[in-house]
Design a protein around this nucleic acid. Sequence first.
DNA 1: ACAAAAGTGTTCCTCTTACACCCATGA
DNA 2: TCATGGGTGTAAGAGGAACACTTTTGT
Lengths: 247, 247
Amino acid sequence: MPVQTNQSLSVDCAVFGFDGETLKVLLIERAAHRSLDRLKLPGSMILENETLPEAAYRVLEEATGLLKRDLYLKQMEIFSDPNRVSGEELEWINRKHGINTVRVVTVGFYALLKLDRRTTDYTTKKGAQWVPIDAIQRLAMDHKEILSSALGYLCREMQQSPVAFELLPKKFTIRALQRLFEAVLGIEIDNRNFRKKMLSSGFLLATGEKEERVAHKPAEYYTFDRNAYRRALKAKLKMGFIDNWRY
Amino acid sequence: MPVQTNQSLSVDCAVFGFDGETLKVLLIERAAHRSLDRLKLPGSMILENETLPEAAYRVLEEATGLLKRDLYLKQMEIFSDPNRVSGEELEWINRKHGINTVRVVTVGFYALLKLDRRTTDYTTKKGAQWVPIDAIQRLAMDHKEILSSALGYLCREMQQSPVAFELLPKKFTIRALQRLFEAVLGIEIDNRNFRKKMLSSGFLLATGEKEERVAHKPAEYYTFDRNAYRRALKAKLKMGFIDNWRY
DNA sequence: ACAAAAGTGTTCCTCTTACACCCATGA
DNA sequence: TCATGGGTGTAAGAGGAACACTTTTGT
């Protein structure tokens, strides 16, 4: 078999947002095509002279209007089945880009963002939609598989690093944080233990501000103390450096 | 910027082995080139009609003589800097393959194997070498970076799943297992606690066989009970399915 | 006054950590 | 008999899991 040279590389992004209740994913509607599924993940071919993360940020800016600094982006898996895009789907891509590729290998990314009014307005204007994770049926190409994979990554990462805060507004209640964990992990969490754990971490700062106009005891707003987290991480790494230079 | 179509995809593998003392990596020697570094990771361009893991297995079989069933392989990161291979290095690749690519994106894999006599014989015949991880200086292209990344992945994975056994012979002593953890993680481990933990996992089976011709109390050989591990994992997943359908 | 969600402590149990000596073998 | 590394138990502390009632607000 000869070396493959007439191939293309693409990025596809599973973009997650949280509205306080459910976890949602950003889906793009593509121009109707008889037998092809309409909804897909935001993605793009890689352009000359850009890295894969750069391509992903470009796609995300286009889809959400948000810049790098307002997005959390992570590379996950590569989908390299020679036939993952073929037949009508391959024609659709070649027509769309005016190229003639025989194979598209894609790199899956997942992205997290703070789902505020401005962002939802922007995405709906673009013809994209935020779909609850549980309501997604079929997607174009192998995008359903990419999405499942992304969800797995998110679950794992949320239990090991403070990515949850990327999905919440700057100020949030501990209950909102808890609901986010429950929505992503699909479990119920004891709120006493949850608060204890979160507050004892030392990474949450009470703002003194409280909810207003709610028909119950108003919850306090907290912020994530990223600096405290960084310091703690650094201390941990420094310790690790003593007895484990490889980290 | 136009869509990039004249690019190539490659795989590069960090192959780890353990000789009972130190963690080693398989390095290939390439034909001398004035200013280029001689040692590199085993790797290859991706061929038409093969997936990335298939390409990686092909590379590994060529380098070690081992088939898929005797290897543990895992995809890690993608290295997509447009200039990661350029100048002389790019010329070297184009000359070697008789192609004319302007860009090579590579996918890093890491592989684990049981380092026995047959394998070391095979690799040395091939002009490859097993180099202790601490003794590696410079490597071709960005292979040093790929290796560092692989080592990080290995450290993390070894603490979360039983990949350690991929690096040990079928029958091994608990001390050997401990030394492996110490070598990879670069830490010292209390052997009483280590034995307790390992034996209480229920995944180690005593064989009844002992070391022979050693100048001290002979250690017992154990095997990894992969079925017990699978059962435990399945049980855990089933539990998880009740309160967390997403795993 | 009532409905609705926020916030708060204690107990039990499990898991982790620290630590020092005897044992079986070959030389 | 000695040198070498294998193998063993216990106690104290930290962290996780289970569990029910009071508080504050809007209506």
